[in-house]
Structures are given as structure tokens and as C-alpha cells.
Amino acid sequence: MTELTSTEKSPVLRVNGLSVSYNSDPVVYSVNFDIPHGAMSAIIGPNGAGKSTTLKAVVDIQPRLTGQIEIFGQTYDKVRNRISYVPQRASVDWDFPVTVQDVVLMGVYPTLGLLGRVRPMHWAKVMEALERVGMTGFADRQIGQLSGGQQQRVFLARALVQDADLYLLDEPFAGVDAATEKAIVKVLKDLQSKGKTIVAVHHDLTTVEAYFDHIVFINRSIVAAGSVAREFTEEHINQTYGRLVASQKQVI
């Protein structure tokens, strides 16, 4: 992805003047950023900075106090089937009585409607997605038997069967093993090479340059946003995390 092509097209995602509050306490405030077409973007910021909240506001789960969000130039509900959202792994009960393939199949539910039959074509999709995340042998396992990394792969597989153009992932690398992290990055880069756009909430500064080409710094409001090459600077890291982390970056 070169700088030139990303500026040619209009942004896939445009967030304008977003603020969100729980009860009367604002969580994020004055958030403005664009995600260019075909980017692999990291949303970076300290705990409680409002990264997940921003992502939830984008997919209309979190009511917004102010602001406007455009995806492919439309509102979310008009382009819902072009977007895949992967919630935090910890947000669900992994003791739920379903198997791996059941969870992945949930990705096609929106296209099935109320009583639409699950056809061999859908199962083929499920199996293909499981293969892409390296979980073919686990299709029939109960999800409670999986490790954290494997659970994250299942969530990613569910997103893959949605066949979206924009993937929004909340902390896809939280609590996963090194092999899984590699596997997920490979899948995401593969998606990017097919022209999909990816936005992931991320918290590991050391891997930003290796994984991503676009970055959004957020700490309650936007600190900076743009290409990793230009914006991933010590100054912006300082501004986002405060002075403490600044010294850590030097160690890195």
C-alpha cells in the first residue's frame, strides 16, 4: 500500500466529532480520524483511553453523544453486510454449549434470514475459514476446550465467513500465544492484499511497525492519525501515553 493510492480514493471510514459518554461521564471526546482504503490500521492508546468504545461506536453498538460516522460514504446500517466486527474474546462466555463450527457458522446467520436453510455451500465456507486460521482439526470441539489463542482464531474465522470489505477487530492479539499472533497477522495481511481494509485495537508498541501501515493514536481524544511511517513518532507516543512510557520506548 503506497501513500499515493490511499489518498486517491475517499476514506473507507470517516469519524467526525465523535463523543461518547456512559451516564454523565464522557469516555471519548472530539474524536476525528479517517481510515484510507486498503489500510491495515492500529488504534493505539493506554487502557481506558476509549479504543474499544470508539470501535463500538463505529458499529453502532455504543450510542454516541455527538458526531458523525461514515463508512463507504454511508451510515453503518446501510453497509452492515460489508463490515465484519470481531468483539473482544473476553466478552463472551466460552462455557457456552456450542462447537467451533457452530460459532463460525454464526458468521453466515445474517445472510440466512430467519428460517433459511444452512446449505453445503455455507458449511464449505465455514471449513475454508477454519482452514485459513489453522483450526480444521478442531471443528467439532466444544469451545470451552480451546486455549485463548485458539478462541481468537475461531472469532477470526467467524469474521472471515462474513466476506466483508472492512474488518474491525477489538484486541485481536490480547492474551494469545506467539504462534497464534503470527497466524492472525498472516490472515490479516492476506485480506489486505485482496484490497480489504483492516482496523484493529492494538496495545503492543513493539509490533506496530511490523504489522501495520496506518495508525490512530487515541487517549480520550485523537492525538494523531496517519501512516505509520510518518506518525509513529516518539512525540506522539509520549503525547498518548504520558511521559512514563516515553522512556520505555527508548529501551525498545
Partner: peptide
Amino acid sequence: IVFWRHFVLISFDETFAASAG
């Protein structure tokens, strides 16, 4: 029977369900 998928979705993963409409 009719709303089986809805009930399963909201029971297992409310956030995903909401994002899927």
C-alpha cells in the same frame, strides 16, 4: 423455531449480534 438463531446469537455473543444487525 423461528427465532432460534436470534436467541442463540444474543445468548452467546451480544456484541457480535448487535453488530450483525
